[in-house]
């Protein structure tokens, strides 16, 4: 049981190795390029923030895109058939497929933010709260990366399940339409329930203060904790559904 899960995680790692290297280079460039190409400190501040946002978006798109691409390739080359034919349980297979990209992206976000925050702290002589930077990104992963990864996995399995009847396009549309409606409902739900529980103190925010000669302070902000629980619930829901659909997958 644990042996097969270990091997599945190993497969994930082999698949994501190259991508992990690319993301590491991205972190490096995100910090270095603004430092070298910013004329002054004010520009540097803006550029670092800008580069970080761009890197976060690019990392997400790249990881999800390559993951879906490699799943599709595995189906063509027959590895998928071997996994489907192995006695490993649906839960193991689904969990390993989710854990690979989700963990990689979470680590990427944490490293990226800790690196940029450390650079900001260094150049503006502010004491950076790197632990909080890391926590903040785990929060972000919880409300975006994890549900998105689980949703993409569910989508892939959904299409595989209904593909053989020759309706993959229809399956895709049904899935996207259903997800859109569900997404709107979740946002609505979050708007109504947020703020009832105590806020979480995890958001370190660098602020430039012009009145004191452009010094920089770190303000620690609070965030709602409801979205985290709801989105983790959504993640779990997608994974359970994936596991159920896995039994019906046809390759």
């Amino acid at each position: 049981m644990t042996r097969s899960f270990g091997v599945l995680i190993w497969l994930e790692w082999k698949r994501l190795q190259t991508l992990a290297a690319i993301l590491a280079v991205m972190v490096f460039l995100t910090v270095l390029i603004p430092i070298f190409f910013s004329p002054d400190r004010i520009e540097l501040f803006g550029n670092l923030y800008g580069a970080r946002s761009a890197a976060m978006a690019a990392g997400l798109v790249l990881t999800l895109g390559l993951t879906v691409f490699s799943w599709a390739r595995e189906r063509r080359t027959g590895l998928f058939q071997m996994l489907l034919g192995s006695p490993a349980s649906a839960a193991q297979l689904v969990l390993a497929r989710f854990a690979g990209p989700a963990a990689l992206l979470a680590v990427f976000l944490v490293v990226l933010n800790v690196a940029t925050d450390a650079a900001l702290g260094h150049f503006f002589q502010a004491k950076a709260h790197l632990g909080l930077s890391a926590l903040a990104m785990i929060y972000v992963s919880g409300i975006t990366v994890f549900p998105i990864c689980a949703w993409v996995l569910l989508g892939f399995i959904f299409v595989l399940t209904f593909r053989s009847s020759g309706v993959s396009l229809a399956a895709m549309l049904v899935f996207l339409g259903g997800s859109g409606t569900l997404g709107a409902l979740i946002v609505e739900l979050l708007n109504t329930i947020s703020g009832r529980l105590a806020k979480l103190v995890i958001w370190p925010d660098f602020r430039l203060q012009p009145e004191q000669g452009w010094t920089c302070v770190v303000k620690v902000e609070q965030v709602y904790q409801e979205p985290l629980w709801v989105m983790l619930g959504v993640t779990l829901g997608c994974l359970v559904l994936s596991g159920v659909l896995w039994r019906e997958v046809e390759v």
Binding site: K14, E74, R76, T77, G78, L79, Q81, M82, L84, G85, S86, P87, R247
Partner: peptide, 18 residues
């Protein structure tokens, strides 16, 4: 078949290796 997949060894036509 899926219930007894542990006892079935299948070599798919495209192969099974990366």
């Amino acid at each position: 078949p899926r219930r007894h997949r542990a006892r079935i060894a299948f070599l798919p036509e495209p192969g099974c290796l990366l």
